[in-house]
Amino acid sequence: MPAKGYVEISVEGCKGCGLCVINCPTDCLALKTSETNSYGLHYAYMTDEDNCIACQNCAVICPDAAITVYKKAS
C-alpha cells in the first residue's frame, strides 16, 4: 500500500506558479482561483488529502519552499 501523507501550503509564501499542481502524481493539489493572498496571487491548496502519498514531489519542485510534507507514521 502506498504511504499516506498530507501537505501544508503557506498561503502567503505561495506565488501561485502552479508547478506543484502539475507535478503531483495523485492530483490532490489545485490553485484557489477564487481567492488571493495579500500579494494578490492565487495560492495552491490541498483538494484531496486522502490521495496524498507523501512523495514530496510538490515540495521538491516548489521554488519558494512554501510546502511542508507530513507522512503517516507506520
Binding site: 501523507g5 502567503e12 508547478l19 496571487l41 519558494d64 519552499a65 510534507v69 507530513y70
Partner: peptide, 25 residues
C-alpha cells in the same frame, strides 16, 4: 501536525524567512 503523522519535509533553516523577490516559478 496531525496526530499519527511525522514531519518529512520543511523549508531548510538555512534559507531565511524573507520572501524571495523572484517571479512565480
Amino acid at each position: 501536525m496531525k496526530e499519527g503523522y511525522k514531519l518529512i519535509y520543511q523549508k531548510p533553516k538555512t534559507l531565511r524567512e524573507k520572501r524571495m523577490h523572484y517571479c512565480p516559478g
